[in-house]
Design a protein around this nucleic acid. Sequence first.
DNA 1: TAGTGTGAAATCTTTCACAGCA
DNA 2: TGCTGTGAAAGATTTCACACTA
Lengths: 209, 209
Amino acid sequence: MNSVTIPKATVARLPLYLHALEILAAEGTCTVSSEMLARRVNVNAAKVRKDLSFLGTHGVRGVGYDSSELGTRIREALGLTRDFGVVIVGIGNLGAALANYDGFGEQRFHIVGLYDADPGTIGSKVGDLVVRDVRHMPADIAENNVEIGIIATPAAVAQEVATQLEQCGVRSILNFAQTVLQVEQADVRRVDLSTELQILGYYLRHDQS
Amino acid sequence: MNSVTIPKATVARLPLYLHALEILAAEGTCTVSSEMLARRVNVNAAKVRKDLSFLGTHGVRGVGYDSSELGTRIREALGLTRDFGVVIVGIGNLGAALANYDGFGEQRFHIVGLYDADPGTIGSKVGDLVVRDVRHMPADIAENNVEIGIIATPAAVAQEVATQLEQCGVRSILNFAQTVLQVEQADVRRVDLSTELQILGYYLRHDQS
DNA sequence: TAGTGTGAAATCTTTCACAGCA
DNA sequence: TGCTGTGAAAGATTTCACACTA
């Protein structure tokens, strides 16, 4: 939809550059070099420059990048120029923790609905929101123009929830359940603690990365 | 340390295959084809076969893989043949949720310590464990042979905790804080909600995957 | 001088396509 | 017949190295 297509690997790093820039900005840094960003994001400087080149960014040779302008460019590239409605389904320990997550700062992601199927959880308050019956979800999503769904349910029901989210028109899903979701066309990202631990476990024996 | 070196991309998928096999085993399936696994893990069958070939696995042509044997091979490759001690530092909402995580099933990862710096949190009980003062951490780690540290602290102190973990000999870190950690040689994996949402946000506008 | 922007090389990953075997 | 195992091709990503310029 936008000019040049940015490689997946680059897209995955843009949020890290952005975060680093926000910290630098808070520290009052106006100009930043690829080398500086690279150190903060743990990659090499050539990669930073190549990544930024996809944004059509103009740094200044011999000087570096204007950090506030670069921040703006990255936000534009990521589409962080408008707000996104987010719902969380499954308000157990993890779902509640995610609902309370405060790392959004000045981000554009707004949690607008919390859902659960357990009568004991429905009606309880988490942060500013009251947990609603998951049966209200479809109507709420339509009404609030929700675009992103976070699944934090038990694995057994995650697929069902994903299907339902997709039927409601949600095209982006962040899945914390221990399942690989089958979806029609939604974009799914999966986060799973035991997978991560197993990967770490491997490199504990086979050290290099 | 083990025979052949397995590509990173493959290592990252092995836990998914393993999980799929465990489900299949629970359903009573004895023989599994690359095609079957592929469907469950959302990848293509050639990739499954290539991945499994790094384990030196012998499937049976025309038939498939013996699912229990394949499970054993993957567990061996991942080093899941012994137990791992894990500590969690930062027992806020997220840390507590992780401590209560039950997805380990018959896994080999055991949470053996919970730490926090807040006097109000220290002493409280989460699951079976009592949250201890982070000052006890170094001694506890040495005593319990802890190999993996999970950081769920505020971003501001995450680096300090990481440095400390490394000094205690912990070589694997799972970082849930919104920071890129600088470490000497530890292996770090990072999980961050706002990064994931930003990536999803990008693909919401630039649909393809 | 110090740091960007980028072709071209090196490396890693995925996919194809098919020989080979139970 | 049906599915594995794998070379070889295609594609993606990373890194190098250097021309260029404020």
